[in-house]
Design a protein around this nucleic acid. Structure first.
Lengths: 217, 217
DNA sequence: AAGAAGCTGTGAACTTTTTCACAGATAGCA
DNA sequence: TGCTATCTGTGAAAAAGTTCACAGCTTCTT
């Protein structure tokens, strides 16, 4: 009944990138684009782009390629919840506040509407146009505002507890920045953004470059 | 001559997680651990853990499993550059400063030693014990301090230019937080952390959960 | 001392993801 | 009109990553 579950996580990630690139092109007045051009912009390959668009049932035209505006709109309607998606963030420390600032106004259909923290100095203040609330109000806020997404930016030792509270409150998708893996029911989608691992991966591959002098472009 | 290039990027990522988990266990006085326990902690499977450790040539013992301290040390010596890895960050905005704070003192062999920005108000100041310098000094700093890693936290429209400057200065690994794909020579390792995509993926899978009520655990 | 239990290491099977390669389509041109 | 060039859509092949399943080892128990 739903084609949705059939589209892989990786494809979803790339579609998100494509539509962002397409927005940029659209702003520059670009009308059409070929798969190999989108591939270059997105750092992928042409067949991959075509496969990804095939996954959402989008068709281009031979020799004109894809229509930028139309494709962009198709990705939107495939990915966005028409009613919008509302999220909250738990942990209003440096990282939490930076992420709120980063996302503010980025997509019309996806908004962070409240922050939560347990620091009395933060509670009651406003961060990036969002109220910062006491954790005690998490469950009622989620229910009242129809929140489905939670962002976790608390320290590692509090992350599991916060994840449990979010799930208990009814959140079904979590973006976790804490450097541990959360244990949550399988119907909750969890995306781990592990900054330490990302950094250490780069450090590792830097080192291996150094060992073996690479020859040629 | 080097086993290093044979270990996949995914395995490196998991090793980074394993050693972090092992540090935690070590601090609690834990001595031994089985593959299935590490699997639970890391959100993977037991055979996967064993395969990953096989990749670095580490052997456990049947019925005792792996020695926590020894395994942790083995991963360190596999992943860390013995001379340490020094990095710089370009872009001292909200996100850049949050990331500096996040990494400060996290690993002895991996340090961010300087920040760069083009805002005159920031230049000359100190952020998380790092000097914030003018972009003009990037190249000489990289050379003088033996920097091999760069973190990009500038807006999308400046990211490619910053990437080019980093590579020109001699950096061979980049952690990019700007929401575009960088075009750089193939000998430079680039890790993209795309916060927008991560968020949009969660939003997408949240929505698809809602469509089809999941039955059972 | 011998059997039971439960682990690791790993070849082989399987699954997922990516890439290839080409039929079919469209537009431009002579 | 017919030829050429170049694109898309996609079956099939290849590659990458994961899981299975079991031989072999070690310890514990009786």
């Amino acid at each position: 009944m739903e084609t949705r579950e059939l589209v892989s996580e990786k494809t979803i990630g790339r579609l998100s990138l494509y539509r962002r690139l397409l927005s940029g092109l659209l702003a520059k007045g670009r009308q059409n684009i070929y798969s190999h051009e989108l591939a270059t912009l997105s750092g992928g390959t042409a067949p991959q782009v075509r496969r990804d668009l095939m996954a959402i049932g989008y068709s281009g035209s031979p020799s004109k390629g894809y229509e930028v505006a139309d494709l962009s709109e198709s990705i939107n309607s495939f990915m966005d919840n028409p009613d919008g998606t509302r999220g909250i963030i738990v942990g209003a420390g440096n990282l939490g506040r930076a992420i709120m600032a980063y996302f503010e106004g980025r997509r019309p259909k996806l908004k962070i509407v409240a922050a939560f923290d347990n620091d009395p100095n933060k509670i009651g203040s406003e961060i990036c146009n969002c109220p910062c609330c006491d954790m005690a109000y998490l469950k009622t806020t989620v229910a009242q505002m129809g929140i489905s997404l939670g962002v976790i930016t608390v320290p590692a030792n509090r992350a599991q507890e916060v994840g449990d509270k979010l799930v208990d409150a009814g959140v079904t998708g979590i973006l976790n920045f804490a450097p541990i893996r959360l244990h949550l029911p399988p119907n909750v989608y969890v995306e781990h953004v592990d900054l330490t691992t990302s950094m250490e991966k780069v450090a590792y591959f830097v080192q291996s470059n150094k060992d073996s002098d690479v020859a040629g472009a």
